[in-house]
Design a protein around this nucleic acid. Sequence first.
DNA 1: GGAGTGTTTCGTACAATGTACGAACAGGGT
DNA 2: ACCCTGTTCGTACATTGTACGAAACACTCC
Lengths: 220, 220
Amino acid sequence: MKDAGAGGRDRPGLSREKVLRKALELADRDGIAALSIRALAQGMGTKPMTLYYYVANKDQILDGLVDLVFTEIDTPEAGGEWKEQMRRRAHSAREALRRHPWAVGLLESRKAPGPATLKHHEATLGTLRAAGFTVQQTARAYSLLDSYIYGFALQEAALPIAGHEPMAEVAGPIMERFATGEYPHMVEIATQVVMQPGYDYGNEFAYGLELILSALEPAQ
Amino acid sequence: MKDAGAGGRDRPGLSREKVLRKALELADRDGIAALSIRALAQGMGTKPMTLYYYVANKDQILDGLVDLVFTEIDTPEAGGEWKEQMRRRAHSAREALRRHPWAVGLLESRKAPGPATLKHHEATLGTLRAAGFTVQQTARAYSLLDSYIYGFALQEAALPIAGHEPMAEVAGPIMERFATGEYPHMVEIATQVVMQPGYDYGNEFAYGLELILSALEPAQ
DNA sequence: GGAGTGTTTCGTACAATGTACGAACAGGGT
DNA sequence: ACCCTGTTCGTACATTGTACGAAACACTCC
């Protein structure tokens, strides 16, 4: 027998929910590459094949992870001013993707959107439509905003370990090339921007977002 | 002894170059997941371990692939009008990433930029600086443009097999949900935009790009 | 020729992965 | 007692990257 409903007790049984949540934890801690069925099973105190009762295969776990990440993104509300809604959505999306950098790479290959993902898209589209955007305009605005958000997250994920010891491993192998004077503009950026004391690439996100939001307008 | 220089005969020997080029071919044909050392060796008519004479490990192959892709992107020239340069660069980047969709996901994890990658970045930065952007502005403009380009490519790569049979596999599993009327705005977009006869998502790229380029201006 | 030296190929082996298959166990309903 | 349904897991296999070291080859010098 199932234990009542889909709520979820805590001690005894496993559940699809718990499997996914543990997978999220492991992916965050050790990276998505280290998320193996065996490691996941071990983390849950069970054996590999047990997981297959709750999940059809590993792809389904990855799909589930993506949907979990969408859970953490603010969904626009129907009533609010659209730019403010989009701003909130964008910032929370970026933050979620920074918390789970592996998710960006996953977006590419997943093709089974989960309920949270669908709900999120639906709400966002609704907000734009309600703001007066035509269907066409809505599609374009959405594409533009999401491209920027995902692209920024992608670049942020590609950075060295994000703030830990400003530059060192990355600088090492490249510095030789830099020393040749072959890349003066990259050096310029590196020294005058990136390596500056308080610099945090994440703060640049707002700049591009505001630029885009300023240029977007419904109807015309 | 080595055969004269690093030019590269064609018939007999292998070479790092040829390994990478074959890897590119296989990745394009069968997807990045199918690119195994064994498959690659077979494709070149040799045995797996032979490849390790030319390449230290598989990661180096992936790094090489990313750099190969950058090879296909137009590098801005020093003299030209900057917006036109950025436009060309952006379009050719998007096209390259559409030809090699797997490359988008690779950008995230690679941390050893190849010579083509570095040269490309350097030239782009140079063009912006020459156009009068300050160092700060250059960093921001570059980040904004690349975020949009990569993000768009990411979304394009996430689409179904791009134009082949407009919607079918994707529609199938989701249509049930759609039928419930739970996602009216997604249906709206799907029917009135995406499923329209001549629709090609790729064409939307120009819209966002022009919007961004219009809003970008050096100095102030 | 033969010996020596460097370059290139590859056979074998191992550890790690996803997962198919089917057995084992649990608990309730009859 | 029996079975039914839900859950756990042992074993096994194919596929992956690649370490190790030997073999095959090419070329120079005697």
